[in-house]
Design a binder for these strands. Structure first.
Lengths: 139, 139
DNA sequence: ATTATATTTTGCCAATTGGCAAATGTCAAC
DNA sequence: GTTGACATTTGCCAATTGGCAAAATATAAT
């Protein structure tokens, strides 16, 4: 970063995707998040699609409604280096490739929490059966 | 903060004094700190006397030359609340009703997307069976 | 005092942030 | 299809950030 930046980066946007993913997963609309955080929905939208970069003040405001720890978001945004604060990893390892499909999140969110948890119960049952099968084959 | 801030605060400056104090005691001149941190000396000067407020990026750059921990400075600047780490999430109470349970989200997110979608498929299958049963009972 | 030199401050301006309001897109119900 | 109720995006603009270069101020040496 020798001089000024070459006018808005516009590509290479991880933070926006993470924020959007989290907002969808919660789930919230831009307007709801705007109301909960006190940041305008238009600004939030631009941040998500990488047209604006959030300041620390904005990041701090949206942290709680999205269920992030403050320092977690700061680290994700590159304001804080990974080893500072309690966040051990570099962010990409935690969120890249391990995300909840938005459609799935939307569907499940419509169910009562008991049903949601029951679904997870069934999933682990299936997985344990699969493990059993793998044992059989090996024998 | 309802709207915009009433144009530059200009009074009530702790951070600037702390930064200047630290720079003097290191000791460094504005120009030396500028060179060591990559922030212009004029900007640093204005920050010290409270005419500008440093962004997170700037704060991060000057932390090491001044011998601060990053999160220490962030806390001083009010970007980070004093006891920032270790806050467990409580989102379920706030957005009751239409939310995805955090535990469920975490569990599901660890599965590949195909599995996530398969789970939803199974769920709708079960629901359709349940609907059939409800019909039987009514008859 | 007077020049030389180092340090800080100021004037100016491009870049960026973030809000409001209007435009646009989406989607279900009729 | 149209209406209405949403959500998201866009146009515009005020406020702020931060750099460069020149001006002011302090410091030292002769």
């Amino acid at each position: 970063m020798a001089k000024y930046n070459v006018i808005m980066d516009y590509g290479n946007n991880d933070l926006g995707k993470i924020l959007k993913q989290q907002r969808i997963t919660v789930p919230l609309t831009l307007q709801e998040l705007a109301k909960a955080s006190g940041v305008s929905s238009s600004h939030l939208g631009r941040i998500e699609r990488g047209e604006r970069f959030p300041s620390a003040r904005i990041l701090r405001k949206i942290a709680k409604p999205l269920g992030f720890d403050e320092d977690e978001l700061f680290t994700l945004a590159g304001f804080l280096s990974p080893q500072s604060s309690g966040v051990a990893e570099d962010g990409s390892s935690r969120y890249a490739g391990r995300q909840l499909d938005p459609y799935v999140a939307k569907m499940l969110a419509e169910e009562p929490v008991e049903v949601q948890r029951a679904v997870i119960g069934i999933l682990s049952l299936i997985k344990s059966i699969a493990r059993g099968m793998a044992q059989e084959v090996k024998k």
